[in-house]
Design a protein around this nucleic acid. Sequence first.
DNA 1: TTTAATGTCCGCGGGGAAAG
DNA 2: CTTTCCCCGCGGACATTAAA
Length: 342
Amino acid sequence: MQSNVKNISVQVIIDPIINTDDYENDFPIFEEEIRMTTTIPSNVLVKDIPKVIMNHFDLQHLLPTSEVFFLCPQSKNYISLIDLNDVLTSIGMLAQISNDICYFKVSVSGTLEDFSGIVGRNAIYRNLAKYFVKIFSSTKNSTNIPVIDNAIESIKNSSFIKIPNDNLYEINNAIEKEMNKVNINEKNVLGQLSNLNKVTNLSFSEDSKLENDARFGIQSFSTPNIDQKLSKDYDILSIISPPPKRVKNNNGPVLPKHPTLITATHWKRKITYDKEKEIPQLEYWYTINKNPKHEEMIVYAEELNKISRRTRGSEISISNIKTWFRNRRSKETKERSNSSIL
DNA sequence: TTTAATGTCCGCGGGGAAAG
DNA sequence: CTTTCCCCGCGGACATTAAA
């Protein structure tokens, strides 16, 4: 019964997208990869791989906001498992084309608290510390900055951090403290991990299969002899190529792509300029200078926020202004080329 | 449909290491 | 010390996507 089921080594890169509700800037771009390994029985179906991976890393509650990508060894590009969903195939067959080690990338959106149970959470905190220092190094006693307020709120709501004061350096100190605590507790964490691995390394007798089904909450595990059910002449490569529609070099998936991620992160939130007040002002500035300097754009953003009285958290940023000027210039060149054709 | 936001490509300039 | 080379970040042009 357990003859043709073996354990596949799996390397997983977690791409956390920290969801801070309503701030408009980019989500943190993490410098440090959160890379983890586990093993998965070879008869797990592709459609169940996300469930298994998220369970292994204590992220099952974030399954709806996650998307899992498989590193295709031929093209060195990541392909979304959603694209393979309709195919009755197993991770064992993916492993056959990747020399028995599968590489996956998981894009997952959640709050800081959502990631608190993850084994690699110290890497997340290190990344956040770097991010905050990088972005807000000049604002020592900043208050009323939405992203910091949100971060403080997220961290306050988390079960294992208490913030004594509301400023950036206190946040960083708290993060550092938490990282130290995590390092001290590393042995406990590793203990828990090895327990987890014991379960996944069990050979698949019918009984342990049921055990795992209960643990993972997955129905398809109880399907016997999945590998034998798969057609022998089934060609996985014909499904994997051509590559997905948009592939960003070889650096991984373009984020976010899954609809749940779009709503969860407010992807591409678009501001609307006031046609009565703001657009005429921008057009006036454009007639004066089509390529304003950074300092000028700071002034422009302040001016616009003054006249439009936007609510806090939805103010016009310098990057909004920069984008407007960029698009305005491109509009002009397009108009000019159109008129020259006529 | 309009247009803000994003992706991709490319050139430029600064900083630092290696070579002379 | 000067020159050369390489890396990296920044910003612009252009193309494309997607929100309103």
